[in-house]
Amino acid sequence: MTEQPAAPATPDQTTSLEVLAVPAFSDNYLWLIHNGRHAAVVDPGDAAPVLAALQANGLALAAILLTHHHADHVGGVVELASRAASAQFPSIPVYGPAREQDKIAGMTRPLREGEQVELPQLGLSLSVIEVPGHTLGHIAYHAPAESLLFCGDTLFAGGCGRVFEGTPAQMVASLAKLASLPGATRVYCAHEYTMSNLKFAAAVEPGNAELLIRIRQEQAKRDAGRPTVPSTIALERDTNPFLRATEKEIVQSLQKAGRLTQLGEVESFAALREWKNTYK
């Protein structure tokens, strides 16, 4: 990976493509995928920083990709599609979850499980994975050839999203789909929550040596003003408690805290998620 200074965005080199982390609000990352000429943006909750990054890097926006309907992920869609339109791309396609089409203004290309998004201007093909839980229609985008995953608020670095609309069982199944991807897959989640997540992870699995190493490494990135994202699927499998809910030490921590009375993956996950909701 080639790191460059973060002016409007911080680049992450992936084969012939770059993925720019465009900061927004207090802790969002709006992901800009580009090849030096054309770009696609993931979850533009705010149009302004994306427009600035496009201009700074001399890019033409070819597509908008949405994972779910929350405002911090879709709030900039209409303005961005209008203002970034060009002679080359007079009508920018806006891809998003078919199950949430009625909640997202400006979406033009509804998507379902197993469908493909083809972006020939970038030489990029993305598979759609339905991952309900955080919202009922949430989707993720997986680029197998480039080992990229854009997962919105389902899987976080060291954590997962809150279960707002779905059920714990749905979230467990969704996380299992993502955890089954190749270990080298780079995980581009939508928020910089990593240190808070890892603090909780260490509380419930203090004997995890890989986790302790990760905490030191991620804190060093934050101290240097760098993002902790992307992560990898392999790292999440080894250190993310929400992918490890049935590990012996985690189960024991839940039982010791009086939060788990019935054994099972869904029960352990639900107890972990409830605990994390109020953990300080």
Score class of each variant (00 low, 15 high):
A173N: 12
A81R: 12
L65W: 02
G161P: 01
Q88H: 12
G183V: 05
L136C: 07
E267C: 03
F89G: 00
A62F: 08
L198D: 05
E130M: 09
V172A: 03
A270M: 01
G75R: 08
R37Y: 11
V117E: 10
H73G: 11
C151R: 10
L175D: 06
S26I: 14
L263R: 13
F150N: 07
V41G: 06
P8L: 08
T10P: 00
T194P: 06
S174L: 03
L263W: 11
A71G: 14
L119A: 11
R83W: 12
R162A: 12
A87Q: 10
V229G: 13
F150A: 09
A257V: 10
V128Q: 02
L66F: 06
E165Y: 06
S147Y: 03
E265N: 09
R244V: 03
I104S: 13
H68D: 13
G133F: 01
D238I: 07
P23V: 10
E192R: 15
T228P: 10
A53S: 08
A234L: 02
L122E: 12
N240V: 11
A63G: 10
E118F: 14
V41L: 11
T278N: 06
L212C: 09
V266T: 09
F150D: 12
A209H: 15
E218F: 15
T185K: 14
G264E: 00
A56V: 07
E236F: 01
A176G: 02
N277H: 12
L211A: 06
D102H: 10
E218H: 08
Q262G: 07
Q116N: 09
T228F: 04
Y141Q: 05
N35Q: 08
A201W: 05
V204S: 03
A62S: 14
Q170A: 04
S26P: 07
A62W: 09
I215A: 03
T228C: 15
S268L: 04
E146K: 02
M171A: 12
W275N: 01
G225K: 11
K199R: 14
S174M: 07
V163H: 02
E218W: 15
G133S: 02
L66V: 09
V94G: 01
E247C: 07
G45L: 02
V74A: 07
V204T: 11
M1F: 10
Q170F: 05
K276S: 12
F89R: 00
H138T: 09
L254A: 04
E3V: 13
E130R: 07
E79Q: 15
F164I: 08
A24L: 01
S147W: 00
P90M: 11
C160G: 03
A56Q: 07
E79C: 10
P206R: 05
E267D: 11
S91D: 14
Y29V: 09
T135K: 06
H34L: 09
D43A: 05
L235T: 14
A224S: 06
N28Q: 08
I250E: 00
S91M: 01
G96K: 02
L272M: 04
L32T: 08
P241F: 04
V204Y: 06
P11Y: 00
